[in-house]
Each structure stands twice: as C-alpha cells, then as structure tokens.
Amino acid sequence: MIKRNIFVKIKNDPVLLKIVKFFHENPSCIDSAENISKWIGEELKTVRKKLDYLVKKKVINKDKTYLAEAYSYTQDKELM
C-alpha cells in the first residue's frame, strides 16, 4: 500500500515533481543524476538528494557499480 503522503510531498516539492514528471514522460530512461539534472534543468546537488529520497520511497530504482550509478522509473503500476 502506497502512503498518500509521498504524493503530497511530491506535489509540494517542485524538484521532486519535475523528476517524477520527467520519468513519467520518459519511462524507459535510465540515467545518471548528472544527466537527469540537465534534463530537468535543476542543480545537481539538489537533484541527487531528491533522487535518493525517491529511491528510498521506491518511486525510482537505483543501479550502482564502481563505474556508474543510474536511476530509472519504477515498474510498479500502482505507483505509476
């Protein structure tokens, strides 16, 4: 069961909303925090923080290797 307050928080946070909107429009995207910050036109430091929050809430996934880290949209239909 998805907690309603995640949606409220996303709705009230412009950067979170931009990130979720970006992934919703590009559900196939798998990209680094640097590139996502460029796609949505926000500062990298903030974007990284928000991305990690969304990973924690399982709205997006994170893949990490020693060379790269990448974020992608959830496959959970309920969340999408």
């Binding site: 590009n26 798998i30 990209d31 796609w39 893949d63 290797t65």
Partner: peptide
C-alpha cells in the same frame, strides 16, 4: 529530446554493464 534521452540511456546502460 527523446532521442537524446534514449542515447544517454544506452550510454548509461553500457557503463553499468561494462563495469559489472
């Protein structure tokens, strides 16, 4: 834009799998 995002995705996937 979607093409650039797709290209970036291909590049990121390459980095992810080549470093595993």
């Amino acid at each position: 834009r979607p093409r650039a995002i797709a290209l970036s995705t291909v590049h990121t996937v390459h980095r992810l799998i080549s470093s595993t």
